[in-house]
């Protein structure tokens, strides 16, 4: 079922702040097997000019995806079938790396909705700002809800 085009351009209210903790960054880096000390050792981070440990570049996706999930993907009016959703593409623009101590809000918006061979293709943007209101990063996420009878190769 095609998604309602009238959702294009819809913007959702900013999320409550997500507080970035050192141990969360460590857990995330370790789950990737990434041992770069800039993620775990404040001294190593300071040596590169950061006030505290920074997060791996894709960490911000966990925050924007959570925001998109709660607000957009589960929006009952939009009616996306999450069980059939795969990640189509992903892009980030960074002003600075996420770091421990950040309190980040996400403002999500629907950039586009397309229907291709029965697949629904949804593009969501998440603007991430810190407590001072300064831009940290923007995440551009495309999700593909595969048609019920499609094999995955056909949808790509």
């Amino acid at each position: 079922m095609a998604l309602d085009q009238s959702f294009v351009g819809r913007s959702y209210p900013p999320t409550a702040p997500y507080e970035v903790g050192r141990e969360k960054i460590r857990e995330f880096a370790e789950s990737l097997g990434d041992t770069n000390p800039v993620y775990t050792d404040p001294e190593a981070a300071r040596a590169l000019g950061y006030p505290d440990v920074i997060a791996p570049p894709t960490f911000v996706f966990t925050i924007t995806f959570k925001a998109a999930g709660k607000q957009v993907i589960e929006d009952p009016q939009l009616g996306l079938d999450y069980s059939r959703v795969v990640h189509g593409d992903q892009r980030f623009e960074y002003t600075r790396p996420v770091r421990a101590g950040d309190r980040l809000t996400v403002t999500s918006a629907i950039d586009s909705i397309k229907s291709l061979a029965g697949n629904d293709i949804l593009s969501v943007r998440g603007e991430v700002h810190d407590e001072a209101g300064d831009h940290v990063a923007t995440s551009f996420t495309t999700l593909v809800a595969r048609a019920a009878d499609a094999e995955v190769e056909e949808s790509r």
Partner: peptide, 10 residues
């Protein structure tokens, strides 16, 4: 430096 990334997409 991971913070050297300005833009990244796949």
């Amino acid at each position: 430096d991971p913070g050297a990334l300005v833009e990244y997409g796949v």
